[in-house]
Design a protein around this nucleic acid. Structure first.
Lengths: 218, 218
DNA sequence: TCCTCAATCTGAACAGTGTCAAGTTTACGC
DNA sequence: GCGTAAACTTGACACTGTTCAGATTGAGGA
């Protein structure tokens, strides 16, 4: 079933060309990142192996080390892109609404959607032990994603920056916890389409409960 | 075909002494569970290995399979005890308060405290891929822990059972997400004592924000 | 008391993992 | 055209979880 995938390699002359055979790969970084994301999508965070990623990129198991140092380095790059994508999804969701509360709700849905649609990548993003946790670019990307919540929350609650930070921590915790619990089947099976929709409506109820429409809650 | 959990071994009456030398271990199941918890405490969920647990129990790497089938079986047993301990901590925390809101706050603190003080075990409890996720005892233990929240939430919000379920999902999601994010250093370093206390006061603020004292919130 | 036999545990093997050192191939500036 | 440095491979090592044949044991029946 999984036989040697045709190696995607760069043509010698100019590295902007289509991939063909050759000792040097040419675009190995990108190929490895893409391969890693594919492995994460298929086998989840626990099922990721460096050798499998290398295999899919058509190179030897030792090749990644020349570009990323080790598996943590490669996964860190994957996580950074994951955070970028997450931040984009959050910004996108908020931008489609007018009301601050609706923006927050949309962000919550987008967050959980992101987690449920890319479970492996999402779990890896929050698996510090498998990443270079103190990588500055990683930390920056993570904080940028968190800031998307803070922006909307500040708009919603007003108050001092400290209050906004608290409220943002609350929002992030809630949606993150919901996503994590959902991924571990605590709210039913995520596998089926019906289960997925049920989970998302549960999330909707949770958001309505914690951030209701009127200013007087409950 | 089902995992061969050995029958509870009767302690050899005349040999109730030190489990020192001997071909037969005598209390290997308990020893393996204890060893696993020690490994989890020292190296975290990612750092757990079956061989290391066996090593600590003074037994060959193949021995655990006779009692737990495989690593998942052993870890499932560890997770079950973890959920039992968690449920106990939640019940305990609530029992010390009168007001329903204070009970919920105490449960939230207890939940995060549990996670931060036993990170490896906690993370493993929610790592379905490393457990026998459909083990009935595991599911029951997990639901029992979740029910501790539901009990207090029902007391707090009243309403229909469905509303209570929503509110309980919200509470669980929030404290679980907070714990997970804290463990991944999203709220500062957990390592230092000062960082730990800062995290717990942040949690306090979050709880006060989401479940404030008066009925009119914020 | 002895004997059997099932339960328990070992030892060796296997396939797979991440990483390292050393060797091979290629690209590119001079 | 050449030399050098980067890119990649090869082979090895120390691990991992799991399997299976066989050694060891103790408990209960004779």
């Amino acid at each position: 079933m999984t036989k040697p995938i045709a190696p995607a390699r760069a043509k010698p002359s100019h590295k902007a060309r289509k991939p063909e055979a050759g000792y040097h790969h040419g675009e190995l970084q990108e190929a490895l990142i893409a391969a890693s994301e594919a492995v994460l999508a298929e086998h989840g965070a626990e099922g990721f192996t460096l050798r499998e990623a290398a295999r899919r990129a058509g190179v030897s198991p030792a090749a990644p080390s020349h570009h990323f140092g080790n598996a943590q380095g490669l996964l860190t790059e994957v996580a950074i892109r994951g955070y970028d994508a997450l931040a984009g999804a959050l910004r996108d969701a908020a931008s489609r609404r007018q009301d601050a509360r609706e923006k927050l709700h949309a962000q919550g849905l987008a967050y959980v959607e992101f987690a449920l649609k890319h479970p492996g990548r999402f779990q890896m993003m929050f698996a510090n032990k498998r990443l270079v946790a103190d990588d500055s670019r990683l930390r920056q990307a993570s904080r940028a994603a968190g800031r998307e919540f803070e922006i909307i929350i500040a708009e919603l609650v007003g108050g001092t920056p400290k209050q906004a930070k608290t409220a943002a921590a609350a929002a992030w915790s809630t949606v993150h916890g919901f996503a994590k619990l959902a991924l571990e089947d605590k709210f039913g099976s995520v596998k089926s389409e019906a289960g997925y929709r049920e989970i998302m409506t549960t999330l909707n109820h949770v958001m309505n409960y914690l951030w209701p429409a009127s200013s007087a809650r409950r």
